[in-house]
Amino acid sequence: MEGGNLFSEIPDIINSELFEDIQKHKSVRIERIISDGHASAEGEWYDQEEHEWVSVLKGTGVIEYDDGTLVVLDVGDYVNIPAHTKHRVKSTSATEKTIWLAVFY
């Protein structure tokens, strides 16, 4: 059995969003994402093969869909993003690191 802590080993300085796989299986991948005021580049969209369930564990984040819809996520909030739904990170907290938990399936 393996274990860990989602709030440990967080670097003091993060130049770009940090993506870390926690677990991988043939049909599921669990990822910790750490943002520090980061956002997707303007005009850059995720268009993923997998569905993505994502939650904010610390901080805040705003997800933008290509139709202009914005979803604000505070601590404990989550959203499910169906495969091939174009989206981007519009913004994350400028005052603290944002820790996301993402499950791809």
Results as ranks from 00 to 15, higher is better:
Asp36Val: 08
Ala41Leu: 08
Ile99Asp: 06
Gly37Ile: 08
Ser35Gly: 04
Ser93Gly: 01
Asn80Thr: 12
Ser91Pro: 03
Glu64Leu: 05
Asp47Val: 09
Glu31Asp: 09
Gly37Glu: 06
Asp12Asn: 12
Leu57Pro: 06
Val89Ile: 15
Tyr65Phe: 15
Asp47Arg: 05
Gly43Leu: 10
Leu73Lys: 03
Ser93Glu: 04
Met1Glu: 10
His84Leu: 11
Thr69Ile: 10
Phe19Glu: 02
His84Phe: 15
His51Ala: 14
Gln48Ala: 08
Asn5Val: 13
Val72Pro: 01
Val62His: 04
Ile81His: 07
Lys90Gly: 06
Val72Gln: 07
Glu96Asn: 01
Tyr46Met: 13
Ser93Asp: 07
Leu18Ala: 02
Gly68His: 04
Asp74Asn: 12
Ala83Ser: 15
Glu96Gly: 04
Trp100Asp: 01
Glu52Phe: 12
Val71Phe: 09
Ile22Lys: 06
Met1Arg: 02
Trp45Ser: 10
Val28Leu: 11
Phe19Gln: 00
Ala94Leu: 13
Ile14Lys: 04
Gln48Met: 14
Ser8Val: 13
Asn5Ile: 13
Thr69Tyr: 04
Val62Ser: 02
Pro82Glu: 14
Leu70His: 13
Val56Gln: 02
Ile14Asp: 03
Asp12Ser: 13
Ser35Val: 00
Ser8Thr: 15
Asp21Cys: 03
Leu6Asp: 11
Lys26Tyr: 05
Asn5His: 15
Glu49Met: 14
Val79Asp: 00
Asp12Gln: 12
Thr95Trp: 01
Leu57Trp: 00
Thr92His: 07
Ile33Asn: 01
Asp47Gly: 07
Ile10His: 13
Thr60His: 01
Ala83Leu: 11
Trp100Glu: 01
Glu2Pro: 09
Thr98Ala: 00
Glu49Pro: 08
Asp36Phe: 08
Val28Gly: 05
Ala94Trp: 08
Asp12Trp: 00
Asp12Arg: 03
Val72Cys: 05
Ser91Gln: 09
Glu31Asn: 11
Arg29Val: 11
Lys90Ala: 12
Asn15Glu: 08
Ser55Thr: 14
Thr69Arg: 04
Gln48Asp: 14
Arg29Pro: 02
Tyr65Gln: 06
Phe7Gln: 13
Glu50Arg: 15
Thr69Pro: 12
Val62Cys: 09
Asn15Lys: 10
Lys26His: 07
His25Gln: 11
Glu50Tyr: 10
Thr98Ile: 00
Ile63Pro: 00
Pro11Thr: 10
Tyr105Val: 07
Leu70Cys: 12
Glu31Val: 14
Ile81Glu: 03
Glu42Val: 13
Glu20Phe: 02
Leu101Glu: 06
Ile13Glu: 15
Gly43Ala: 03
His38Tyr: 05
Glu52Gly: 10
Ser40Asp: 08
Asp36Thr: 08
Gly61Ile: 03
Gly37His: 10
Asp67Met: 06
Glu49Thr: 15
Asp21Thr: 10
Ile22Ala: 02
